[in-house]
Design a protein around this nucleic acid. Structure first.
Length: 297
DNA sequence: TGGTAATGAGCAA
DNA sequence: TGCTCCTTACCAC
């Protein structure tokens, strides 16, 4: 899936383009017809993300809660204030950039295109639209439901007010591998398979290290590094975890994908730091874990 | 045309 | 631990 940074981009997009307006809500696919009816015609008052969960609050106290899962994506379009249509969500190609700037602005907004048959939700204002496909979760929540859900989510590195303490204590009290804890949304919210692998590499940490044996200064480093990496992800619309000196000879950002990561998806390639053919892939908790057996000890 | 993998997570066993 | 759901795109045949 889109990791946490993508969801924060979605929230930003909604905040800019839809919040403050009355929205028409529908479910072209039909599977969310009842939910859409609950907010159809209501005014959007706030959009935010917590980890990989997206929340759109309406003035009738109901909240649209979306989790994109592995395949979900939002597509946006509208008049000039929207820029041209773009999408945020499940990338289909490695390193794909989300919401690329359009080459030309749309001349005249005449309304949204016909929805794909798989469109779960379409939200429409007078000057733009947002389509959701493939989400694993899409529902309407009461305020209590939102509170209940958020209580189960750990601190989000992309939340500037977040207190990382719960993440530190989660690490101290479990012998589960640190590589598994980083993926646990109850311990820390928003990290996915790429940020997991890349931040562990940058910390020089063996993913199998029992979390309670990771020094406090290292868990603090992991938090701070994910704050930095994910913030970069929000700004770029793409995950780039390599330091500039490890992207030598790459000037165009369109060439970044092949130099954007240290270990994710790089089995059989030379490690950018130690130069060894030491990057391996294994299964951890049902997900593919990539790491360098020389750099991460 | 069909098999598969993909930045996820809930659930049964 | 493994199955399931959601959807798309790429690849091999």
């Amino acid at each position: 899936m889109p990791e946490g940074h993508s969801i924060h981009r979605v929230a930003r997009r909604f905040q800019d383009a839809f919040v403050g307006q009355r929205l028409r809500a529908s479910s072209p696919q039909g599977r969310f017809a009842q939910g859409a009816a609950l907010v159809d015609g209501a005014r959007a008052v706030e959009a935010y993300a917590h980890g990989k969960h997206f929340f759109l609050v309406f003035d009738n106290d109901l909240t649209l809660n979306v989790h994109l899962g592995m395949y979900g994506a939002w597509t946006f379009g509208g008049d000039a204030t929207f820029r041209a249509s773009s999408s945020i969500g499940a990338p289909r190609k490695m390193g794909e950039e989300e919401s690329p700037d359009s080459e030309e602005a749309e001349r005249e907004y005449v309304g949204p295109p016909a929805p794909r048959p798989t469109t779960r939700v379409r939200l429409e204002s007078d000057n733009g639209w947002a389509d959701l496909i493939g989400a694993t979760t899409c529902r309407i929540l009461e305020p209590t439901g939102v509170a209940e859900l958020r209580k189960k989510l750990g601190p989000d590195p992309l939340d500037t007010d977040a207190d990382p303490t719960p993440f530190y204590s989660a690490c101290r009290k479990t012998s589960r591998p640190i590589g598994a804890v980083l993926m646990d949304q109850q311990a820390i919210a928003g990290i996915g398979n790429i940020y997991r692998a890349e931040s562990l590499f940058r910390a020089g940490l063996d993913p199998h290290t029992p979390a309670h044996r990771v020094p406090d200064e290292t868990t603090a480093l992991l938090w701070r590094d994910n704050v930095r990496l994910m913030s970069t992800g929000v700004e770029l619309g793409r995950i780039v975890t390599t330091a500039p000196e490890h992207r030598l000879g790459v000037s165009s950002r369109h060439a970044w994908p092949t130099h954007a990561n240290y270990v994710y998806g790089r089995v059989g390639h030379t490690c950018r730091v130690c130069g060894n053919d030491a990057i391996v892939m294994e299964d951890m908790g049902g997900r593919k874990l990539y790491w360098c057996t020389v750099c991460q000890t």
